[in-house]
């Protein structure tokens, strides 16, 4: 099996790796980079447990080749520290077995990077990409609301979308 050297930019670091072109990003992250936060749940793009953020957008790393990600900025759950969404997942008991959690958190984080004042249909549209079998989803919904409100509260007043100008 032919292998090639590539450099991926992951969690702020350049990682030079020897991979097959047919290797998925998920396999390379887990087996070569030791970044096991992204999980294989279906390897078919259906469950979202492997979600990582590439250039600010969530991607299912099982349906992306690692080589496609060269030249792009990759962030995995290991690169996310003390974020509002992680704190909210902790506080709201928005996980049980924890296997889908990195994928949910990365998707939700990308959504909140995108916009912190989104409505319920938009949240649903983003989050229905992931499957959680343990919780009732109500816990995850609470976590999203909590993260949104902390993020909005932390914004300087004049940057709040609807705050009256003084």
């Amino acid at each position: 099996m032919t292998k090639h050297e590539v450099t991926l930019h992951i969690n702020g670091e350049d990682r030079t790796l020897v991979i097959r072109h047919a290797d998925t990003l998920l396999d390379v992250l887990r087996l070569q980079c030791g970044l096991t936060g992204a999980k294989p749940g279906c390897e078919n793009g259906d469950c979202g447990a492997c979600t990582v953020i590439v250039n600010q957008l969530p991607y299912k790393s099982c349906i992306m080749l690692a080589i496609e990600a060269t030249g792009h900025t990759i962030m995995t759950i290991e690169g996310l520290k003390h974020s509002p969404i992680q704190r909210a997942f902790a506080k709201c008991y928005a996980f049980q077995c924890g296997y889908c959690t990195p994928g949910f958190i990365m998707n939700a984080h990308a959504m909140l990077l995108h916009d912190t004042s989104i409505d319920e249909p938009t949240i649903q549209e983003w989050l229905e990409s992931n499957i959680c079998r343990c919780t009732s989803y109500e816990e995850i919904a609470s976590a999203i609301r909590m993260a949104m409100s902390t993020m909005n509260a932390n914004l300087p007043d004049n940057s709040k979308p609807n705050s009256p100008s003084t």
């Binding site: 979202g48 969530p58 299912k60 992306m64 229905e128 990409s129």
Partner: peptide
């Protein structure tokens, strides 16, 4: 088609 994350790809 598919879901939001998959549609990014």
């Amino acid at each position: 088609i598919a879901d939001r994350t998959a549609r990014n790809k």
